[in-house]
Amino acid sequence: MRRITIKKCVTILISLFLLNTIMYSANRVGLNYSDHVPDGYSLVWNEEFDAKKVNGGKPALPDPDKWFYETAEPGWVNNELQTYVKGFIDTDTVAAVYDGTLKIRAIPRGDKVYSARINSINAWTYGYFEARLKVPGGKGTWPAFWMLPKNFTAWPLDGEIDIMEYVGYDPNFVHSSVHTQSYYHTIGTQKTAKKEISNAETEFHIYAVEWTKDYIKGFVDGVEYFRFDNDGTGNKHTWPFDAPFYLKLNLAWGGDWGAAQGIDESALPATYEIDYVRVYQK
Rank of each mutant, 00 (worst) to 15 (best):
Y166K: 02
F145E: 00
V174A: 15
V167N: 02
P156W: 05
W142S: 05
L157K: 14
L157P: 04
G137Y: 12
N151E: 14
T141V: 07
A131F: 09
K139R: 12
D158H: 01
P143H: 07
A144P: 00
D170G: 00
N151H: 14
D170S: 05
D170K: 07
F173P: 00
V167R: 01
W155C: 06
E165F: 09
E165T: 09
P171F: 11
A144T: 09
N172V: 02
N151K: 15
V174Y: 13
P156Y: 02
P156Q: 07
Y169M: 05
A154W: 07
D162P: 00
E165W: 08
W142C: 05
G159H: 10
F152W: 13
D158F: 03
K139I: 02
N151V: 14
G138T: 10
A154Q: 13
L157D: 14
I163S: 07
F145L: 14
A131K: 03
G138N: 08
E160R: 13
W142E: 02
K134P: 08
T153K: 11
A154T: 15
V167I: 14
T141W: 04
V174R: 08
W146G: 00
E160T: 13
L157F: 11
G159K: 06
I161Y: 03
G137A: 13
M147W: 14
Y169D: 00
L133S: 04
G137N: 15
Y166L: 03
Y169L: 02
Y169N: 00
P136N: 09
W146D: 00
K134D: 03
V167G: 04
I163G: 02
P143Y: 06
K150L: 15
M147N: 10
N172A: 05
G159A: 11
L133H: 09
G168A: 06
N151P: 08
R132C: 15
V174W: 12
V167P: 05
A144R: 01
E165R: 10
V174S: 12
K139F: 15
F152H: 11
L157N: 15
I161H: 01
P156T: 11
E165S: 11
K139A: 11
L157V: 12
P136Q: 10
G168P: 01
Y166D: 02
N151S: 13
M164L: 13
P143N: 03
Y169P: 06
K134L: 08
I163K: 04
L148Q: 04
W142R: 01
V167H: 02
I163H: 07
L133G: 06
D170N: 09
R132L: 15
E160D: 10
K150F: 15
E165C: 12
G159D: 06
